[in-house]
Design a protein around this nucleic acid. Structure first.
Lengths: 199, 199
DNA sequence: CTTACGATGTATGCAGCGTTCACATTAAGG
DNA sequence: CCTTAATGTGAACGCTGCATACATCGTAAG
């Protein structure tokens, strides 16, 4: 099944479309991600992808979901289970670096109106949300997990987007990393004050 | 000049296109923002807008720039020159509310690859950047203004985006406002620790 | 072995989009 | 009044997403 001769049936068009979409995304940005271009790259007729994706949005959602999974892996690789502020900052740096290394993908993941139709996409996003929550819970058992998770995720996410939009200095990766570390440390020098936050 | 009969020359097509674009954005989201739709709404031929905007991106940039100016005014209206954490939190709440009230516009402003070609757009963004810096400088004279500005803007910006993408609870405006206030206060209970941040 | 069937890919066609170009109309100034 | 530059029009090109009807193939029952 996985072996495709290449005559009429492709073999695994679904995966091939995803691959092609990722490539187009990196090459031409999200503007170049068209179903027809994907089909061309996969060496298949323009309408063939519709057998595997209901419409363009479905393909985009699949790409986004894959991006979420990769992001989770990327963060986990930065540090499996951070507890100290330094370790947490390392994960934050990884988050921003992920965004800057795959800007188009990151935009597809977050900057587009996310329809709650795609189960795959929703699952992937809640997974990363849980991941952040888990980290905060482990690192700051006394704090209001919910509020603190929101705060730290928002901070890191905002840093990623502002860098992506050129609103902050992105001259070198080191500069970026320092900005992120500074911001995260600013947050966690006052964990004791948080537990009183509203639910 | 401003009075247009309506015969052949429109009178102020440039402004009319902007208005139409804003309306389409609110009605159909950014997907519905097409040059042809703008032209139709302005009661003009499909190619007429090209006399005033080089291409679609130029129109979008103009819309974004207008959004930036409105955002600045919106924040200033929340509090002219905040100094206490509470006042600053009020501005932050306004920022997020702006995003949630005009989601499509906010996405156009930030979620799209911002080409540095549009002078108007760059000017508007640096203006708001300076605005944030000014607030931080006034509220926390002893801190590292640059780092702290980055941190607070990123936090608020991230909150806005996560809310926009449905990653946080947006059931009621009050819930949102509380989340924002909590996050901002978490930041500013530890201002004394910040001055040692790198430049 | 044959045959029918479901899954997969193709061909065609429609409407909408951004953009270009040649042309029409008009307001403004010498 | 007549020229000129600015502004709006119309047709046309290639691209897009998408729906529909058709072709091809693996497979499994008879």
């Amino acid at each position: 099944m996985s072996q495709a001769g290449g005559t009429y049936h492709h073999g695994d068009l679904r995966a091939a479309c995803l691959r092609a979409a990722r490539e187009l995304l990196e090459e031409d940005g999200s503007a170049g991600l068209s179903l027809r271009a994907v089909a061309r790259r996969a060496g298949v007729s323009a309408t063939a992808p519709y057998r595997h994706y209901a419409d363009r949005d479905a393909l985009v959602s699949a790409v986004a979901a894959q991006g979420y999974r990769e992001l989770a892996a990327y963060l986990a690789a930065a540090h499996p289970s951070p507890t100290t502020p330094d370790e947490l900052a390392a994960v934050a740096v990884a988050y921003v670096r992920f965004a800057l290394e795959r800007p188009a993908l990151f935009r597809v993941m977050f900057a587009e109106p996310c329809d709650p139709n795609s189960e795959e996409r929703v699952a992937a996003t809640t997974a990363i949300s849980e991941y952040v929550r888990g980290i905060v819970r482990g690192a700051f058992p006394g704090a209001d997990t919910e509020a603190l998770s929101t705060t730290v995720w928002a901070l890191v996410h905002g840093l990623a987007f502002l860098h992506l939009d050129g609103k902050l200095d992105t001259s070198t990766p080191d500069v970026v990393a320092d900005q992120v570390r500074t911001a995260v440390h600013a947050l966690f020098t006052a964990p004791a004050a948080l537990p009183r936050a509203r639910a």
